[in-house]
Amino acid sequence: MDRESVRDAERVPHGGTTDRDVLDLSANTNPRSPPGTTAVYDATLAESRRYPDDDYAEFREAAATVVGVDPDQVVPTPGGLAAIRLALATAVDPGDRVAVPAPSFGEYAREVRLQDGEPVFLRPEAVLDVDPGDFAAVVVCTPNNPTGALPDRSALVALADRCADAGTRLLADEAFLGYTGQASLAGHDAVVVARSLTKLYGLPGLRAGYAVATGAAREDLATARRAWNLGAPAAAVGAHCLRQHGFVRETRETVRRERRRLRDGLEPSFEVHPSAAPYLLLDCGDRDVDALLADAREQGVVLRDARTFRGLDSHVRVAVKNDDTTDRTLEVLDVRPDDA
């Protein structure tokens, strides 16, 4: 990490609120966690009196099953963002150019800048067509945040193949891929995958995630990660959740149903972007976005101001959770649930 770049860096806006008295639709997290999660956490808390096993064998095995790789390719991290940082910090030198999608998650560009690299902003679909030889790393977000667009896997694999030929790292942020049926890019020689338990398992405060890589990239990540970077409760809860495949299937179906119902209720009042993710991006057109956000907050609902994403100037993002939140969203946005 470049010292001067750190001094010039700024924090990135995110969704989420600490106000427990509102319905938070600004953060795209599952309102449910797998059955038994609390019991696993309580049973493991006592183990926090000693250092955890730094090998994290059970966590790595559970994660490997999810993405279809060997457990040795999994590198545990305290959340998906820590995996993103590791992937970029071990690939980007001062002055390096990195292809970054925009609009997309603002932390990509921040992490590149912290290494004194240069983020080169491209439309998410344009990233798929880049010449990897022009960059030290390329970033893709699947599905993209905040648009929800899911690139075709064949296009992603083609990009990964070109990155392998050019010796360029492809960082695939798969934070929301578990909500889809698309296979992970994990295991490809050019790819570092970043995943977390934040979104799909509804545990943003646990701070558990992992990177997946092969060969020299995997060795770099494993060496660079901090020792004991998952607490004992996070590792145990993580392993438990990652084994709950039935819970994931149920969550996918709920989100698919409610996303469709929410989209149908919001159109044509809003221009709604197609999405494969647990959120919808709304173009508010001529509406006063500040007034819309403030009005929703007065009614006890927090929406995500998507104008903080590069290239968006009249947008909000709405999380998709369950039938009750769908009804409430349509009500707050002046769309009757009966119309949905």
Results as ranks from 00 to 15, higher is better:
Met1Lys: 08
Glu4Cys: 14
Glu4Trp: 15
Asp8Leu: 15
Glu10Val: 15
Gly15Tyr: 09
Gly16Gln: 11
Thr18Cys: 12
Asp21Gln: 12
Ala27Tyr: 03
Ala27Gln: 12
Thr29Lys: 08
Ser33Val: 07
Thr38Arg: 14
Tyr41Lys: 10
Pro52Met: 00
Asp53Phe: 11
Phe59Gln: 00
Val69Asp: 01
Pro71Ala: 00
Pro71Glu: 01
Asp72Val: 15
Gly80Val: 09
Ile84Ala: 03
Leu86Lys: 04
Ala87Lys: 07
Thr90Cys: 08
Ala91Arg: 04
Arg97Ala: 14
Val100Trp: 04
Pro101Ile: 09
Pro101Trp: 07
Glu107Thr: 14
Arg113Thr: 09
Gln115His: 06
Gly117Lys: 08
Pro119Leu: 02
Val120Thr: 10
Phe121Tyr: 14
Phe121Trp: 06
Ala126Asn: 09
Val130Leu: 05
Ala136Tyr: 11
Ala136Arg: 03
Val139Arg: 00
Pro146Leu: 05
Pro146Gln: 03
Pro146Ser: 07
Leu150Val: 01
Asp161Thr: 14
Arg162His: 13
Asp173Met: 09
Ala175Trp: 10
Leu177Asp: 01
Tyr179Val: 03
Thr180Met: 13
Ala186Asn: 02
His188Lys: 09
Lys199Asp: 08
Leu203Gln: 12
Gly209Met: 02
Thr214Cys: 07
Arg218Asn: 09
Asp220Val: 10
Leu221Glu: 01
Arg226Asp: 15
Leu230Gly: 06
Gly231Phe: 06
Val237Lys: 04
Leu242Ser: 09
Gln244His: 13
Glu253Trp: 08
Thr254Glu: 13
Val255Gln: 05
Arg257Met: 06
Arg263His: 12
Phe270Lys: 00
Ser275Ile: 06
Pro278Thr: 00
Leu282Pro: 01
Asp286Met: 04
Val289Lys: 08
Leu292Lys: 02
Ala296Phe: 08
Glu298Ser: 11
Val302Gly: 03
Asp305Glu: 10
Arg307Cys: 07
Thr308Met: 10
Leu312Gln: 08
Val316Gly: 03
Lys321Ser: 13
Asn322Val: 10
Asn322Ala: 12
Thr325Asp: 11
Thr329Ile: 09
Asp339Lys: 12
